[in-house]
């Protein structure tokens, strides 16, 4: 297994947010984490990369227990994180944004160079010296993914990549994610848009009120409209 999460519990202050979350991601898999807003998708990701101070449980990444490590060490192991809201450094140029994400080459993960990323996201190549703050939402979403790929991760957590993007840009995002998969990156993507998730994912988990309440292939999910409708409330 690429990533195994067991009994993950998280708190914000007095509020208990995640309850015994557990899921797995296989080598080269794209797994969707589905659920409504506030269900705990982002908190799950933030907990995995150590951005939530109060968490317990076991997080195994490539066979190593990373649950007690600080954020930057987890990321340096090759576990990339793309946050929601993109969080581009708006004062820095595209090149400088990528520089912040740069990490050394890793033996078991695809190596990304600026040139390769500009091929994946041609728009970025045309605006290397533009400050992040003067880019459109779609361009920023591409930059935030490219920035994380500069760290040569073997697995990427993608938090709501389609949020706030026009349908056309979302379709480009589908292509980019499938290309990443082809290159050998494992991906966990959190989503509310089931159409989008279906186009990219091998398997899906549903999270509801901080608990995992379904796990299976996309076909299995489609054969269980009761679960889908109860928790995704389509």
């Amino acid at each position: 297994m690429k990533l195994t999460v067991q009994d993950l519990n998280s708190h914000y202050g007095p509020a208990h947010i995640l309850f015994d979350i557990g899921f797995e991601v296989g080598e080269g898999e794209v797994v969707a984490l589905l659920g409504r807003n506030g269900a705990g998708k982002s908190t799950t990701f933030r907990s995995i990369v150590g951005l939530v101070a109060q968490r317990s449980g076991r997080i195994m990444f490539e066979g190593k227990d990373v649950s007690a490590k600080p954020t930057h060490e987890i990321v340096r192991e090759g576990l990339g994180y793309v946050p929601e809201e993109r969080r581009i450094f708006t004062d820095l140029t595209v090149e400088e944004n990528l520089e912040v994400g740069r990490q050394p080459k890793r033996p078991n993960a695809p190596h990304w160079t600026r040139e390769k990323l500009f091929a994946l996201f041609p728009n970025l190549g045309e605006m290397k010296n533009r400050p992040g703050g003067r880019m459109s939402g779609g361009e920023q979403q591409m930059l935030t993914i490219a920035r994380t790929l500069m760290g040569n991760p073997s697995l990427v957590l993608l938090d709501e990549p389609s949020e706030g993007l026009s349908p056309k840009i979302v379709e480009q995002m589908v292509d980019a994610i499938l290309t990443m998969k082809k290159e050998g990156v494992s991906i966990v993507v959190s989503e509310q848009n089931l159409h989008f998730a279906r186009l990219i994912s091998d398997r899906a988990y549903i999270i509801e009120r901080g608990r995992i309440c379904f796990g299976g292939t996309m076909a299995e999910l489609d054969s269980r409209p009761d679960i889908r409708d109860a928790h995704l409330s389509l």
Binding site: P167, K168, E171
Partner: peptide
């Protein structure tokens, strides 16, 4: 051409009648 694209990411639901 400029916005909706091919309709993959929003239209499916209507097609399926769900």
């Amino acid at each position: 051409a400029v916005y909706l694209g091919e309709g993959l990411v929003y239209d499916a639901r209507h097609r399926e009648g769900t």
